[in-house]
Design a protein around this nucleic acid. Sequence first.
DNA 1: GACTCATCCTTGAAAGTTGAACTACATCGG
DNA 2: CCGATGTAGTTCAACTTTCAAGGATGAGTC
Lengths: 167, 167
Amino acid sequence: MTMAPIDGPRWLSDEEQRVWRAYLHATTLLEDHLDRQLQRDAGMPHIYYGLLVQLSQAPRRRLRMTELAKGAKITRSRLSHAVARLEKNGWVLREDCPSDKRGQFAYLTDEGYAVLERTAPGHVAAVRQAMFDRLTPEQVAQLGDIMKVMAEGLQPSDPNADLPWLR
Amino acid sequence: MTMAPIDGPRWLSDEEQRVWRAYLHATTLLEDHLDRQLQRDAGMPHIYYGLLVQLSQAPRRRLRMTELAKGAKITRSRLSHAVARLEKNGWVLREDCPSDKRGQFAYLTDEGYAVLERTAPGHVAAVRQAMFDRLTPEQVAQLGDIMKVMAEGLQPSDPNADLPWLR
DNA sequence: GACTCATCCTTGAAAGTTGAACTACATCGG
DNA sequence: CCGATGTAGTTCAACTTTCAAGGATGAGTC
């Protein structure tokens, strides 16, 4: 007599495999598509564009580096390199934080804002064409719910949230 | 008198923005999560892992480079680099195509297959935990439909499908 | 104050990606 | 057979990302 397997690999069902593959294909195709669109029209990859957008919506068009990294879901290291590059373009500048000498603000220059104004319509159109124009309103709502659930489960805030005994 | 604007930028509605942001966050978090998981447990990024999976499912565990690239939705250039790296690991080998002297097959070695056997359960578990364990069956079905629609709209087969006059 | 530890951000090197240029072979039409 | 054109795959240089290490400052404790 043996015990039931503790947790033999629970493979994906055919349905799940189908969904997973569709997910991978759609997300990689869209990511590539937007990267190319923005590289062509704005001269930067999608993530960099997202940084400018975030800055443009922040008070006084500036954010602490860490806040910016959190908002974009990237590491501080990656952000450092990215901001260095955007700084070379003259679209972003750094500024010391007066209250915390370790801190830096990144702020969006007028040129950076201009790039955004010039390229945002095309980008929105690309997003719309790839996603919102193809989905029904119900599907858009469903997608929102689904993505919200998934994002919540992946917050890096607490990678061992479900393994409390390891903490 | 002016004409109605041809197509003033159709911004995203609040709802759409919310969905778009959720989509970006969820997909980037998941991608990062799986990349780290596989880098840690299998010593390669997610895309490389996907290449091994594809090979493992192909007849005689081999595919033409272009087929492999198409299946993985990546450029041939990227694939060349990837296969070079996997070859260094001893997980994949190249083989001349007898019927077309320009062609190359990539095939999965026994070691490559072993890596897959060893790491697949952990990877499936990660996918399951991030996606399928968190969604209801209805949501999984919805996600499948949605991703299918999006992927279809992004097939690189015909980037100007909606601009026939440019072809 | 001095110590310790955490946080903020940067750096450098290695790894991965991109897009264009390039080689070699195939295919098509004469 | 010839030339033109297309396809398969690689390579190079520029760029981006990752990971580990490190310098500097802040915060808590004695």
